[in-house]
Simulated scan of single mutants.
Amino acid sequence: MAVPKQKRSRSRTHHKRAKIYRAFIIAVTTCPNCGAPKQPHRVCLSCGYYGKKQIFEVAR
């Protein structure tokens, strides 16, 4: 079984863990149909379109 030659310092451990727990930035694009902000590759929740197809009807 592999055994580390030296103890990993506390700063190295915390530096490694900080990358795991960082906040994720959500990408946002505009809908080509209505111009509302939406996530890419998802149906627009304000108009119901995905690309140039209407996927569902939005009740207003």
Rank of each mutant, 00 (worst) to 15 (best):
M1T: 10
M1I: 11
A2R: 10
A2L: 10
V3Y: 10
P4I: 01
P4M: 04
K5L: 13
K5P: 04
K5T: 12
K5G: 11
Q6I: 09
Q6H: 15
Q6R: 12
Q6K: 13
K7H: 06
K7G: 10
R8E: 10
R8W: 02
R8I: 11
R10I: 13
R10V: 13
R12G: 07
R12T: 01
H14S: 04
H14Q: 15
H15K: 13
H15P: 03
H15G: 14
K16N: 13
R17C: 11
K19R: 13
K19T: 06
I20D: 12
Y21R: 12
R22I: 00
A23W: 00
A23E: 08
F24H: 15
F24M: 09
I25L: 07
I25Q: 11
A27C: 05
A27K: 12
A27S: 10
V28N: 03
T30V: 06
C31S: 03
N33G: 05
N33R: 11
N33M: 05
N33S: 12
C34G: 02
G35S: 07
P37S: 07
P37K: 13
P37H: 08
P37I: 05
K38E: 01
R42L: 05
R42T: 07
R42A: 12
R42G: 00
R42H: 10
V43H: 03
C44D: 00
L45I: 02
C47A: 14
C47N: 06
Y49R: 01
Y50C: 08
Y50E: 09
Y50S: 15
G51T: 04
Q54I: 00
Q54S: 03
I55K: 04
I55T: 09
F56N: 06
F56D: 00
E57P: 00
E57D: 04
V58Q: 01
V58H: 00
V58I: 14
A59G: 02
R60F: 10
R60T: 14
R60A: 15
R60I: 04
